[in-house]
Protein backbone atom coordinates (compact mmCIF):
# COMPACT_ATOMS: atom_id res chain seq x y z
CA UNK A 1 0.00 0.00 0.00
CA UNK A 2 0.99 3.62 -0.32
CA UNK A 3 -0.46 7.00 0.58
CA UNK A 4 -1.76 9.51 -1.91
CA UNK A 5 -2.52 13.12 -0.88
CA UNK A 6 -6.12 14.25 -1.21
CA UNK A 7 -6.32 17.75 -2.68
CA UNK A 8 -9.68 18.75 -1.19
CA UNK A 9 -10.92 16.47 1.58
CA UNK A 10 -14.71 16.42 1.72
CA UNK A 11 -16.53 17.63 4.82
CA UNK A 12 -17.84 14.14 5.74
CA UNK A 13 -14.26 12.89 5.56
CA UNK A 14 -12.94 15.71 7.73
CA UNK A 15 -15.65 15.28 10.37
CA UNK A 16 -16.44 11.59 10.02
CA UNK A 17 -12.96 10.21 10.60
CA UNK A 18 -12.30 12.04 13.90
CA UNK A 19 -15.82 11.05 15.02
CA UNK A 20 -14.96 7.46 14.12
CA UNK A 21 -11.79 7.75 16.19
CA UNK A 22 -13.74 8.84 19.28
CA UNK A 23 -16.38 6.18 18.56
CA UNK A 24 -13.75 3.43 18.37
CA UNK A 25 -12.28 4.63 21.66
CA UNK A 26 -15.69 4.35 23.31
CA UNK A 27 -16.14 0.84 21.88
CA UNK A 28 -12.78 -0.29 23.26
CA UNK A 29 -13.52 1.27 26.64
CA UNK A 30 -16.86 -0.56 26.69
CA UNK A 31 -15.19 -3.89 25.94
CA UNK A 32 -12.67 -3.29 28.74
CA UNK A 33 -15.47 -2.36 31.14
CA UNK A 34 -17.19 -5.65 30.25
CA UNK A 35 -13.97 -7.51 31.00
CA UNK A 36 -14.15 -5.97 34.47
CA UNK A 37 -17.64 -7.41 34.81
CA UNK A 38 -19.47 -4.10 34.53
CA UNK A 39 -22.25 -2.95 32.23
CA UNK A 40 -20.55 -0.79 29.57
CA UNK A 41 -23.47 1.60 29.21
CA UNK A 42 -23.64 2.29 32.91
CA UNK A 43 -19.84 2.74 33.01
CA UNK A 44 -19.92 5.33 30.23
CA UNK A 45 -22.92 6.98 31.86
CA UNK A 46 -21.16 7.11 35.20
CA UNK A 47 -18.08 8.70 33.61
CA UNK A 48 -20.21 11.41 31.96
CA UNK A 49 -22.19 11.96 35.13
CA UNK A 50 -19.06 12.08 37.27
CA UNK A 51 -17.48 14.64 34.96
CA UNK A 52 -20.37 16.95 34.11
CA UNK A 53 -23.40 15.70 36.04
CA UNK A 54 -23.52 18.21 38.87
CA UNK A 55 -22.25 21.64 39.82
CA UNK A 56 -19.63 19.98 42.02
CA UNK A 57 -18.58 17.65 39.19
CA UNK A 58 -18.23 20.50 36.68
CA UNK A 59 -16.15 22.57 39.10
CA UNK A 60 -13.95 19.56 39.78
CA UNK A 61 -13.48 19.06 36.03
CA UNK A 62 -12.61 22.74 35.51
CA UNK A 63 -10.10 22.57 38.35
CA UNK A 64 -8.53 19.44 36.89
CA UNK A 65 -8.45 21.03 33.44
CA UNK A 66 -6.53 24.10 34.65
CA UNK A 67 -3.02 22.57 34.90
CA UNK A 68 -3.73 20.55 31.75
CA UNK A 69 -4.39 23.73 29.77
CA UNK A 70 -0.97 25.04 30.81
CA UNK A 71 0.91 21.81 30.09
CA UNK A 72 -1.14 21.31 26.92
CA UNK A 73 -0.12 24.77 25.73
CA UNK A 74 3.49 24.00 26.63
CA UNK A 75 3.41 20.91 24.43
CA UNK A 76 1.43 22.61 21.65
CA UNK A 77 3.89 25.52 21.42
CA UNK A 78 6.94 23.26 21.42
CA UNK A 79 5.58 20.57 19.08
CA UNK A 80 4.52 23.21 16.54
CA UNK A 81 8.22 23.99 16.11
CA UNK A 82 9.02 20.23 16.30
CA UNK A 83 10.82 20.81 19.59
CA UNK A 84 9.90 17.70 21.55
CA UNK A 85 9.57 18.93 25.11
CA UNK A 86 8.52 15.83 27.07
CA UNK A 87 9.72 17.48 30.29
CA UNK A 88 6.65 19.51 31.24
CA UNK A 89 6.39 17.46 34.43
CA UNK A 90 9.75 18.80 35.67
CA UNK A 91 8.95 22.33 34.52
CA UNK A 92 5.62 22.18 36.37
CA UNK A 93 7.45 21.27 39.58
CA UNK A 94 9.98 24.06 39.01
CA UNK A 95 7.10 26.56 38.93
CA UNK A 96 5.60 25.03 42.06
CA UNK A 97 8.99 25.07 43.78
CA UNK A 98 9.68 28.75 43.16
CA UNK A 99 6.12 29.61 44.28
CA UNK A 100 6.73 27.84 47.57
CA UNK A 101 10.25 29.24 48.04
CA UNK A 102 9.14 32.84 47.52
CA UNK A 103 5.56 32.57 48.76
CA UNK A 104 5.98 31.08 52.22
CA UNK A 105 7.28 34.28 53.79
CA UNK A 106 10.38 35.36 51.87
CA UNK A 107 8.30 38.00 50.07
CA UNK A 108 5.68 39.30 52.49
CA UNK A 109 3.89 41.53 50.04
CA UNK A 110 0.20 42.24 49.43
CA UNK A 111 -1.55 39.96 46.95
CA UNK A 112 -1.78 42.34 43.98
CA UNK A 113 2.01 42.66 44.01
CA UNK A 114 2.98 39.18 45.20
CA UNK A 115 0.87 37.04 42.85
CA UNK A 116 2.18 38.55 39.59
CA UNK A 117 5.75 38.29 40.91
CA UNK A 118 5.23 34.64 41.82
CA UNK A 119 3.73 33.87 38.41
CA UNK A 120 6.60 35.61 36.67
CA UNK A 121 9.16 33.80 38.82
CA UNK A 122 7.50 30.50 37.94
CA UNK A 123 7.67 31.29 34.23
CA UNK A 124 11.35 32.11 34.59
CA UNK A 125 12.05 28.90 36.51
CA UNK A 126 10.38 26.73 33.89
CA UNK A 127 12.05 28.60 31.06
CA UNK A 128 15.51 28.23 32.59
CA UNK A 129 14.92 24.53 33.26
CA UNK A 130 14.04 23.86 29.62
CA UNK A 131 16.86 26.11 28.44
CA UNK A 132 19.39 23.39 29.33
CA UNK A 133 17.96 20.72 26.99
CA UNK A 134 17.36 23.41 24.36
CA UNK A 135 20.99 24.51 24.42
CA UNK A 136 22.19 20.90 24.47
CA UNK A 137 20.15 20.42 21.30
CA UNK A 138 21.23 23.57 19.47
CA UNK A 139 24.87 23.50 20.59
CA UNK A 140 25.66 19.77 20.68
CA UNK A 141 22.82 18.21 18.72
CA UNK A 142 21.70 16.14 21.73
CA UNK A 143 18.18 14.83 21.20
CA UNK A 144 15.79 16.75 23.45
CA UNK A 145 13.33 13.86 23.82
CA UNK A 146 15.73 11.88 25.97
CA UNK A 147 17.16 14.83 27.90
CA UNK A 148 13.76 16.31 28.79
CA UNK A 149 12.47 12.87 29.81
CA UNK A 150 15.49 12.22 32.01
CA UNK A 151 15.19 15.71 33.52
CA UNK A 152 11.77 14.72 34.85
CA UNK A 153 13.35 12.00 36.97
CA UNK A 154 16.25 14.20 38.08
CA UNK A 155 14.05 17.13 39.02
CA UNK A 156 11.54 15.04 40.96
CA UNK A 157 14.39 13.58 43.01
CA UNK A 158 15.64 17.13 43.56
CA UNK A 159 12.20 18.15 44.85
CA UNK A 160 12.11 15.06 47.05
CA UNK A 161 15.51 16.04 48.46
CA UNK A 162 14.32 19.57 49.24
CA UNK A 163 11.09 18.35 50.81
CA UNK A 164 13.02 16.06 53.15
CA UNK A 165 15.61 18.80 53.79
CA UNK A 166 15.49 22.58 53.71
CA UNK A 167 11.88 22.90 52.54
CA UNK A 168 10.40 20.39 54.98
CA UNK A 169 7.48 21.77 56.93
CA UNK A 170 8.35 21.52 60.66
CA UNK A 171 4.60 21.27 61.31
CA UNK A 172 4.19 18.53 58.69
CA UNK A 173 4.21 15.58 61.14
CA UNK A 174 7.17 14.07 59.34
CA UNK A 175 5.54 14.09 55.89
CA UNK A 176 7.74 15.30 53.03
CA UNK A 177 5.69 18.41 52.49
CA UNK A 178 6.53 22.11 52.31
CA UNK A 179 5.07 24.81 54.54
CA UNK A 180 1.91 26.47 53.26
CA UNK A 181 2.22 29.67 51.24
CA UNK A 182 1.02 32.95 52.81
CA UNK A 183 -2.68 33.83 52.42
CA UNK A 184 -1.49 36.70 50.19
CA UNK A 185 0.07 34.15 47.83
CA UNK A 186 -3.21 32.32 47.27
CA UNK A 187 -5.10 32.84 44.03
CA UNK A 188 -8.63 34.08 44.87
CA UNK A 189 -11.72 32.27 43.66
CA UNK A 190 -13.38 33.53 40.51
CA UNK A 191 -16.84 33.51 42.09
CA UNK A 192 -17.09 33.65 45.88
CA UNK A 193 -18.42 30.36 47.20
CA UNK A 194 -17.55 28.32 44.10
CA UNK A 195 -14.45 26.15 44.31
CA UNK A 196 -12.75 27.49 41.17
CA UNK A 197 -9.69 29.72 41.40
CA UNK A 198 -8.21 32.34 39.10
CA UNK A 199 -5.64 29.85 37.84
CA UNK A 200 -8.35 28.76 35.43
CA UNK A 201 -8.75 32.35 34.24
CA UNK A 202 -5.00 32.67 33.83
CA UNK A 203 -5.01 29.44 31.79
CA UNK A 204 -7.67 30.78 29.41
CA UNK A 205 -5.80 34.07 29.05
CA UNK A 206 -2.58 32.18 28.35
CA UNK A 207 -4.28 30.16 25.62
CA UNK A 208 -5.54 33.34 23.97
CA UNK A 209 -2.10 34.96 24.31
CA UNK A 210 -0.43 31.95 22.70
CA UNK A 211 -2.99 32.00 19.89
CA UNK A 212 -2.30 35.69 19.23
CA UNK A 213 1.44 35.06 19.31
CA UNK A 214 1.18 32.14 16.91
CA UNK A 215 -1.11 33.80 14.40
CA UNK A 216 -0.19 37.49 14.65
CA UNK A 217 3.55 37.69 15.35
CA UNK A 218 6.76 37.13 13.45
CA UNK A 219 7.96 34.68 16.10
CA UNK A 220 4.80 32.64 15.64
CA UNK A 221 5.40 32.51 11.92
CA UNK A 222 9.04 31.53 12.42
CA UNK A 223 8.10 28.77 14.87
CA UNK A 224 5.74 27.26 12.31
CA UNK A 225 8.33 27.58 9.55
CA UNK A 226 10.94 25.78 11.67
CA UNK A 227 8.42 23.08 12.52
CA UNK A 228 7.34 22.55 8.92
CA UNK A 229 10.83 22.31 7.50
CA UNK A 230 13.89 23.39 9.49
CA UNK A 231 16.20 23.18 6.47
CA UNK A 232 13.95 25.36 4.31
CA UNK A 233 13.54 27.82 7.20
CA UNK A 234 17.32 28.06 7.59
CA UNK A 235 17.62 28.62 3.85
CA UNK A 236 15.03 31.39 4.05
CA UNK A 237 17.21 33.17 6.60
CA UNK A 238 15.29 32.27 9.75
CA UNK A 239 17.68 31.83 12.72
CA UNK A 240 16.50 28.29 13.46
CA UNK A 241 18.44 27.80 16.69
CA UNK A 242 17.32 31.13 18.14
CA UNK A 243 13.72 30.28 17.31
CA UNK A 244 14.09 26.87 18.96
CA UNK A 245 15.53 28.44 22.13
CA UNK A 246 12.72 31.02 22.25
CA UNK A 247 10.19 28.22 21.73
CA UNK A 248 11.73 26.30 24.60
CA UNK A 249 11.64 29.33 26.92
CA UNK A 250 7.96 29.87 26.14
CA UNK A 251 7.08 26.20 26.46
CA UNK A 252 8.92 25.76 29.76
CA UNK A 253 7.36 28.92 31.16
CA UNK A 254 3.84 27.77 30.28
CA UNK A 255 4.35 24.39 31.91
CA UNK A 256 5.72 26.05 35.06
CA UNK A 257 2.54 28.16 35.34
CA UNK A 258 0.69 24.89 35.93
CA UNK A 259 2.81 24.38 39.05
CA UNK A 260 2.25 27.95 40.20
CA UNK A 261 -1.49 27.63 39.68
CA UNK A 262 -1.75 24.29 41.49
CA UNK A 263 0.13 25.59 44.54
CA UNK A 264 -1.28 29.11 44.70
CA UNK A 265 -4.79 28.18 43.57
CA UNK A 266 -5.50 24.71 44.88
CA UNK A 267 -3.08 22.97 47.21
CA UNK A 268 -1.28 25.79 49.05
CA UNK A 269 1.85 23.74 49.55
CA UNK A 270 4.28 21.53 47.64
CA UNK A 271 4.21 17.75 47.89
CA UNK A 272 5.63 15.01 45.69
CA UNK A 273 2.16 14.12 44.45
CA UNK A 274 1.30 17.66 43.37
CA UNK A 275 1.00 16.42 39.79
CA UNK A 276 -0.38 13.00 38.84
CA UNK A 277 1.43 13.27 35.51
CA UNK A 278 -0.08 16.55 34.28
CA UNK A 279 3.13 17.13 32.30
CA UNK A 280 2.74 13.92 30.32
CA UNK A 281 -1.03 14.27 29.92
CA UNK A 282 -0.45 17.74 28.46
CA UNK A 283 1.08 16.02 25.43
CA UNK A 284 -2.19 14.16 24.81
CA UNK A 285 -4.15 17.37 25.32
CA UNK A 286 -1.99 19.15 22.74
CA UNK A 287 -2.30 16.34 20.19
CA UNK A 288 -6.08 16.05 20.60
CA UNK A 289 -6.24 19.81 20.08
CA UNK A 290 -4.20 19.43 16.88
CA UNK A 291 -1.69 21.82 18.51
CA UNK A 292 -4.23 24.65 18.32
CA UNK A 293 -3.99 26.82 21.50
CA UNK A 294 -7.73 27.51 21.68
CA UNK A 295 -8.39 23.85 20.98
CA UNK A 296 -6.17 23.05 23.97
CA UNK A 297 -8.82 24.53 26.29
CA UNK A 298 -11.48 22.15 24.98
CA UNK A 299 -9.16 19.16 24.80
CA UNK A 300 -8.10 19.81 28.41
CA UNK A 301 -11.76 19.91 29.49
CA UNK A 302 -12.38 16.62 27.65
CA UNK A 303 -9.34 14.93 29.18
CA UNK A 304 -10.03 16.32 32.66
CA UNK A 305 -13.64 15.17 32.31
CA UNK A 306 -12.51 11.62 31.54
CA UNK A 307 -10.18 11.58 34.56
CA UNK A 308 -12.68 13.08 37.00
CA UNK A 309 -15.49 10.95 35.60
CA UNK A 310 -13.42 7.76 35.74
CA UNK A 311 -12.53 8.47 39.38
CA UNK A 312 -16.16 8.56 40.43
CA UNK A 313 -17.12 5.72 38.06
CA UNK A 314 -14.37 3.58 39.57
CA UNK A 315 -15.83 4.00 43.05
CA UNK A 316 -19.38 3.24 41.88
CA UNK A 317 -18.83 0.43 39.36
CA UNK A 318 -15.65 -1.14 40.71
CA UNK A 319 -13.82 -0.76 37.37
CA UNK A 320 -10.12 0.20 37.75
CA UNK A 321 -9.62 3.94 37.21
CA UNK A 322 -6.79 3.18 34.73
CA UNK A 323 -9.59 2.83 32.20
CA UNK A 324 -9.28 6.62 31.84
CA UNK A 325 -5.61 6.40 30.80
CA UNK A 326 -6.36 3.60 28.34
CA UNK A 327 -9.16 5.69 26.81
CA UNK A 328 -6.84 8.66 26.40
CA UNK A 329 -4.05 6.60 24.85
CA UNK A 330 -6.47 4.96 22.41
CA UNK A 331 -8.11 8.30 21.60
CA UNK A 332 -4.66 9.77 20.91
CA UNK A 333 -3.55 6.95 18.59
CA UNK A 334 -6.88 6.77 16.72
CA UNK A 335 -7.00 10.56 16.42
CA UNK A 336 -3.56 10.97 14.83
CA UNK A 337 -4.46 8.18 12.42
CA UNK A 338 -7.83 9.77 11.61
CA UNK A 339 -6.31 13.20 11.02
CA UNK A 340 -3.74 11.70 8.65
CA UNK A 341 -6.43 9.80 6.75
CA UNK A 342 -8.38 13.00 6.18
CA UNK A 343 -5.46 14.27 4.11
CA UNK A 344 -4.23 11.03 2.52
CA UNK A 345 -5.91 8.14 0.76
CA UNK A 346 -4.60 4.58 1.10
CA UNK A 347 -3.95 3.15 -2.37
CA UNK A 348 -3.18 -0.47 -3.15
CA UNK A 349 -0.17 -1.05 -5.36
Amino acid sequence: MRLEPIANPTLPRRLGLPALAIGSTVVIASLLAMMAGANPFSVLGLILQGAFGSKFAILETLNRATPLIFTGLAAAVAFRAKFWNIGAEAQLYSGALITVVLGTGLLAWPSPLLLPVLALAAVLAGAVLLLIPALLKTRFGVDEVVTTLLFNFIFLLFISMLLEGPLKDPMGMGWPKSARVLPEARLPRIVEGLRLHWGFGLAILSAIAVWVLQTRSTLGYEMRAVGNNAEAARFAGIPVNTVLVKTALLSGGLAALAGFSEVAGLKGSLTLDLSPGFGYTGIIVAMLALLNPIGVIFAALFVAGIFVGADSMSRAANVPTYLADIMLATALLFMVLAIMLTRFRVVRD
Binding site: W84, I86, V145, Y280, I283, I284, M287, Y322, D325, I326, L328, A329, T330, L332, L333, V336
Partner: peptide, 14 residues
Protein backbone atom coordinates in the same frame (compact mmCIF):
# COMPACT_ATOMS: atom_id res chain seq x y z
CA UNK B 1 7.30 10.68 18.70
CA UNK B 2 3.54 10.86 19.18
CA UNK B 3 2.86 7.19 18.43
CA UNK B 4 5.73 6.08 20.66
CA UNK B 5 4.51 8.10 23.63
CA UNK B 6 0.97 6.90 22.92
CA UNK B 7 2.12 3.27 22.92
CA UNK B 8 3.98 3.83 26.20
CA UNK B 9 0.87 5.30 27.79
CA UNK B 10 -1.35 2.54 26.37
CA UNK B 11 0.95 -0.31 27.38
CA UNK B 12 1.47 1.10 30.87
CA UNK B 13 -2.19 1.81 31.59
CA UNK B 14 -3.38 -1.46 30.02
Amino acid sequence: HVVGLGVTLLATSA
